[in-house]
Design a protein around this nucleic acid. Structure first.
Lengths: 138, 138
DNA sequence: CAAAATTCATTTGTATACGAATGATATTCA
DNA sequence: TGAATATCATTCGTATACAAATGAATTTTG
């Protein structure tokens, strides 16, 4: 006889939300001047090089409205700059600045520590399993 | 030789965010008139009965400011009501209404389907593993 | 008891997140 | 070619999420 009562604590959505919250909190305790979405965007931009705003949004899983806000804030800090694309005037090209590059270089090791701390309750094998399963439902 | 390059796609935080986004999207496609946090709050309230606002917030993992907003919106829909606690005048007691009860009863089966669809890419065994690991890092 | 510390709720400000509407530009196709 | 369609970016509105400040009430403690 298994429990068939609905238990919020056992629902994937509830647990995903809590796990995500804990991660964001750990992130903030290590990197206080950038949020996870901001760091993800900057890191991805550095990885792929100059792209359009919506392309970059797609790469980091943010819709048009969200990526715009993130880029605006990165812009305000001088980590990226933006330029109308002449080949396609609808597009906005996003470029990383030298300061942006420097920030990524400096923060990547911190990011590794954040990942480690988030996964600290698990063994290495369990962490790999978790990552693999999460990717499958993403 | 394992890859040691920092890959955003392999970071637990990034994958957690994406998995959570997918779940919220599935939730919205099944239940359009309540958000996941609203449903969680209402369900929890029904489960534990009348409690203070901050107590309820704790149970559903929301801070004071967040739970206030959620309760305000549930209140506006007539699903809960609120009352100053006479034993402790700082406290606000949150009560579920008959409509609130009815909503929970009606939505729980939908919630089960949402969980199932979110976990659809996994086998039953994998889903259990994922849930267990997520709880450990929550 | 009275002062200090704590707790509960509210408010403000900032940052995702997303649906929907809009305008500008490109592309398709009739 | 020119009209319909699609794409890109922006804006608006709503909803979490949380830090920090504030005020009111309670508890602790000196």
């Amino acid at each position: 006889m298994t429990k068939d009562k609905y238990q919020l604590q056992d629902q994937i959505g509830f647990v995903l939300r809590k796990a995500h919250q804990r991660h964001v909190s750990i992130f903030a305790s290590h990197i206080s001047d950038l949020t996870p979405p901001q760091f993800a965007t900057l890191e991805m931009l550095q990885e792929v090089g100059t792209t359009s705003q919506s392309q970059l949004g797609q790469l980091v899983a943010m819709d048009a409205a969200t990526i715009k806000g993130v880029i605006d804030r990165l812009k305000a800090r001088g980590l990226v700059f933006v330029e109308r694309d002449n080949a396609d005037r609808r597009r906005v090209s996003v470029h990383i600045t030298p300061q942006g590059r420097e920030a990524v270089a400096q923060l990547v090791s911190q990011a590794g520590r954040i990942t480690a701390e988030t996964l600290a309750p698990l063994s290495g094998r369990e962490a790999e399993t978790l990552l693999k399963l999460l990717k499958r439902i993403s």
